[in-house]
Simulated scan of single mutants.
Amino acid sequence: MQLKLDLQFFAGEKTEKATPKKRQDSRKKGQVAKSQDINTAFLLFFCFLLLSVFGSNMGSGLTALYKTAFTEYIHWDLTESNVHQVFVEGTIETAKIIAPIMGIAIVAGLVSNFTQIGFLFTTEPLKIDLKKLDPIQGAKRIFSARALVELAKSLFKIVFMGLITFGLIWFYKDDMMMISFKTAESALSFFGQITIIMGIAAALTLLFIAVFDYAYQKFDFEKNIKMSKNDIKDEHKNMEGDPLIKSKIKEKQRQMAARRMMSEVPTADVVITNPTHFAIAIKYDEAKASAPFVVAKGMDHTALRIKEIAKKNHVMTVENRQLARALYSAIDIGNSIPEEYFQAVAEVLAYVYRLEKKV
């Protein structure tokens, strides 16, 4: 009894790699190995790279908007049409300035996700799941091993990024001390350059950390989708169908085929018997075939049913043990009589026709 329980325990333990179907089902649910740090690193890097190239133009655009606001708009009368015009023009100019940032952010997000998981569109994660509101399950997630790993990872990122930022500030500390001797425009330009350098450095650092995070996410994902031996058996059973159900379907199909076969017996010209073990119903119809063909056959109980139906419908029964056994083994239902049995079957049919006065 104990051995049986141990076997059941090991069979239910998730030790097997996920099957392709399991992976496909998980992917449809939105469960994939993905590092959010890679998305953030791509986003930061491309945004700051864009600022380094087009930052001066964006700054000029903002300056022009401020000049227009405080040299032209400020003198306009406060009317509904003027407010509407200011709002429209300001929105358009602001959109022109931030459009490159928004565009590169969308592209970076798509590229980072496509790089990790390829193309995936699913609405499964958006479905309402009341289990997520369970406070007990929520507490388990908060104090789980994964939560501790995420906490340690966040602390490491904060410390590492802080060191990078502090190092850059320390490197440029002498230039910062001289800011008071520069114009406001020069000071803003200097701090803009420092900010871009810090942003790109932070993005590259985060990307370096994200490589290890992705490896961990991949490992954790593979661990979570592992299957037990019972899971694999159940999946195989579901894919091929339950053997019990399949056997019932086959039995139903055999019964339907038997009923169709029995319905053809009344149309036969003769039933050749063994006399008890085999029964072969034969029909000759020149419009359907050039040779006699089998409309029904069976052995034992089925043979008995064929003879009973033949008797009720006045179909002649002829006993020929050797011929009945040979035809049963050699011919399937619906097939014509082979050439080697033409003479024997023809003699039987001729005998039947004579008795029925058909010739």
Rank of each mutant, 00 (worst) to 15 (best):
L3A: 15
F9D: 12
G12T: 12
R27G: 06
S35N: 05
D37C: 03
I38H: 01
I38D: 01
A41R: 01
F42N: 06
F42R: 01
L43E: 02
L44W: 03
F46P: 02
G55R: 03
N57W: 11
M58F: 01
G59Q: 11
G61P: 04
L62E: 02
T63N: 15
A69T: 15
F70T: 13
F70N: 07
I74G: 00
L78I: 09
T79W: 04
S81M: 01
Q85W: 07
E89A: 13
E89H: 12
A95G: 13
G103Q: 05
G103V: 02
I104T: 06
A105N: 06
I106A: 12
F114Y: 13
I117M: 05
F119D: 04
T123L: 15
K131L: 08
K131T: 10
I136W: 03
Q137P: 02
A139I: 01
I142G: 11
A145T: 13
R146I: 03
E150P: 02
F156I: 13
F160M: 14
F166Q: 07
G167M: 00
F171V: 12
D175Y: 14
M177I: 12
M178S: 15
I179M: 10
T183H: 03
E185R: 06
A187E: 09
A187C: 11
F190R: 04
G192H: 08
Q193N: 13
T195G: 14
I196A: 07
I197M: 11
M198L: 14
G199W: 04
L204F: 05
L207C: 10
A210F: 00
D213G: 01
A215R: 05
Y216R: 01
K218C: 06
K218D: 03
D220E: 11
F221P: 04
K223N: 12
I225M: 10
M227E: 06
D231P: 06
D234Y: 05
E235L: 10
N238L: 14
S247D: 11
K248G: 02
K250W: 11
K252Y: 15
R260H: 00
P275R: 00
F278M: 14
I280P: 05
K283E: 03
D285Y: 07
K288V: 13
A289H: 11
A291L: 00
A296C: 13
H301C: 09
T302N: 10
R305K: 15
I306P: 02
H314D: 15
N320H: 04
N320P: 01
A324N: 08
A326L: 13
A326S: 15
A330W: 03
I331R: 00
I333T: 06
N335S: 08
N335R: 08
S336M: 15
P338F: 06
A344R: 07
V352G: 00
